[in-house]
């Protein structure tokens, strides 16, 4: 704890860019504009618990959950393949995986629009085969697709990095004790990869539950998510107070989910510690 002053710039930075904005959001969320000026009130929060807004909240959580589950189901095997033994192809695979992440997020999502459109690439292909065109864009599925596409690497990479650090001797030891491939996976590899799975879930769920770009572009504004709601309040309606209240609710949800995940993680890692 020497050189404590080294942390001061960081503390100042945190104060200016994190703490003060948070306080402002909190302040806005707890006040309303009245003819006499600003007044303290819980009105904004009460308003959020009206059915239309609750439905938005539920939809956000629901879509984010679905996307997280799909990411996990797709991402885990991918991570296993990446962490496997094909040394030559491995680097290429990881590279191919990371490359799309270098591209602008908006651009990537726009690319999907051109693919899914009524006159888009996929429908052109379908009509070429003599099939009727499908309504792909501006559906719930398109939103989920966009989330999975954009956030999948955040699931794969943490799992990959945990998997590739597992000591090969542990796998040999399990085989030595009579475990076949399936048992080795169930009893050794999967439990040891849980920290990676947990951080993967967090890293996908969080951006998925707060996104507003994906739902606007691929959902066409029909599937308002909580992120869209906040965006609207700030940019179009101009009700910063309600917008701040929604943001606060959002933050609580995220904190809760991280809390639940990390507790589960700890129970698994240090169970029975005394």
């Amino acid at each position: 704890m020497k050189n404590k002053w080294l942390t001061y710039p960081y503390l100042v930075w945190m104060l200016i860019f994190i703490f003060i904005p948070l306080l402002l959001v909190l302040f806005f969320s707890l006040t309303v504009r009245t003819p006499e000026g600003l007044a303290f009130s819980f009105e904004n929060f009460q308003r959020f618990f009206e059915p239309i807004y609750l439905r938005v909240l539920l939809r956000s959580v629901y879509l984010a959950l679905i996307s997280t589950i799909i990411c996990l189901v797709l991402g885990y095997p991918m991570a296993m393949i990446l962490a496997g033994n094909n040394f030559k192809r491995k680097n290429v695979m990881v590279f191919l995986f990371v490359v799309p992440m270098w591209m602008n997020f908006l651009l990537r999502t726009y690319a999907w629009m051109t693919l899914l459109e009524r006159q888009g690439l996929l429908n052109t292909f379908l009509s070429f085969l003599g099939l009727p065109p499908l309504n792909l864009l501006y559906t719930q599925e398109a939103v989920v697709l966009g989330m999975v596409y954009n956030f999948l690497p955040f699931m794969v990479l943490p799992i990959y990095s945990v998997l590739s650090k597992i000591d090969r001797q542990l796998i040999e030891a399990a085989a030595d004790l009579g475990a076949d491939q399936v048992t080795i996976f169930r009893r050794v590899i999967f439990p040891l990869s849980l920290p990676g799975v947990m951080s993967g879930i967090t890293m996908v769920f969080m951006p998925a539950v707060t996104t507003f770009v994906i739902s606007r572009l691929l959902g066409g504004g029909q599937f308002t998510l909580i992120g869209n709601l906040i965006e609207q309040q700030f940019l179009f309606v101009g009700d910063w107070h309600f917008g701040s209240a929604i943001s606060m609710v959002m933050m609580v949800i995220i904190l809760l989910s991280i809390g639940v995940l990390s507790r589960y993680d700890k129970e698994h890692e240090g169970g029975g510690l005394w």
Partner: peptide, 18 residues
């Protein structure tokens, strides 16, 4: 290995950390 009636004590123990 898993079908052999042989067990090994590994040089670096290889105990399961979890």
């Amino acid at each position: 290995p898993y079908k052999r009636r042989v067990n090994t004590v590994f040089q670096k123990y290889a105990l399961f950390p979890h």
